Simulated scan of single mutants.
Amino acid sequence: MRIERLGRVPYLPTYEAMRAFTEARIDTTPDELWLCEHPPVYTQGLAGRPEHVLAPGDIPVVATNRGGQVTYHGPGQVIAYPLLDLRRAGLYVKTYVHRLEEAVLRTLADWGVTGHRVAGAPGIYVRLDAPHDHAALSGPRPGGDPFAGLGKIAALGIKVHRHCTYHGVALNVAMDLSPFARINPCGYAGLRTVDLATIGVAADPAAVREALATHLCALLAPCDPPRPNRAPPPRNADEPERR
């Protein structure tokens, strides 16, 4: 699997490039892992409902063909897009999603943080009162709220076309979290979104990016040695880049 470090690139051209790459692949096309960061943007999944976008303001909202509802991308967030042939890798979709989440769990563990899965809500969550507590979640959450006492630190959304994946996973490291308050993240009203900085972990996004890439390669497919960065996708005039 070739690793492409794209840097900070606008969302829409990156999405279009992923889709074009996937539609053009043949059986021998090497898999790729795109690592990047986006300027502020909201993205809607296929199941996205407009009422979950509360007050986007000047942040663009882009409709996509990934699964899931609305989420936010912005600087200080590490994004990984595996472009993987599942049939060649011998993976079913459910296993693939589980391994994406496992890569995030292992990355968080590198910084001493314990992540958790919540049944029926893809992504990774942390205990707000004890993010370093290794005890597993057990039993029903207080008040019947599956997210009680939890904050979402990583979002996941994928598309599979002819057994090949695109879109991927976003891990919050050190970002402005306020735009999450202008949506119902992933369709859940009141869901708290956090990053490593919020829970008291100082981490360099570049270091987190490389750790996540390492774990994704270990769980999905061997990766090539580092190569010079690919030129980023062209900027779309309708989506100005913010820095």
Rank of each mutant, 00 (worst) to 15 (best):
G143V: 13
D238W: 03
H38E: 06
G151L: 09
R117G: 04
K94T: 08
E51K: 15
P10N: 06
G157V: 06
R162K: 09
E101N: 02
E241G: 12
G90N: 10
L196Q: 00
R162H: 11
Q44C: 14
R5H: 15
R117H: 01
Q77R: 11
A207N: 00
R242S: 03
Q77H: 11
D110V: 02
L12M: 03
E51F: 15
A63F: 11
G200Y: 07
T198H: 10
T14R: 04
T28M: 02
H38F: 12
A202Q: 14
D176S: 11
H163C: 07
L137S: 05
D31G: 11
V97C: 09
P240L: 15
V93R: 10
T95K: 07
N229M: 05
N229F: 04
L91T: 09
I79T: 06
P226S: 08
R19Q: 13
K159W: 05
V208H: 02
D145V: 06
L91G: 09
K94L: 10
L54Q: 14
D204Q: 08
T29S: 15
L83Y: 14
A121Q: 00
P10G: 06
V118I: 06
P40D: 10
G139V: 07
A206D: 13
A207I: 06
P185G: 09
L46C: 04
T71R: 14
G190L: 08
G112D: 07
A218K: 05
R66A: 11
Y96C: 11
L105T: 03
P179D: 11
G200H: 09
I3V: 15
N65M: 08
V62P: 14
V104W: 00
G7N: 14
T14C: 10
I3W: 14
P226C: 13
V97P: 10
G45N: 13
Y11I: 03
T107K: 08
R141I: 03
T193R: 05
W34Q: 12
D224T: 12
L35C: 07
L212Q: 05
I26W: 04
C164S: 09
R5N: 05
P131W: 05
P226N: 13
P225F: 09
R5M: 07
A24T: 07
A203S: 12
G143K: 09
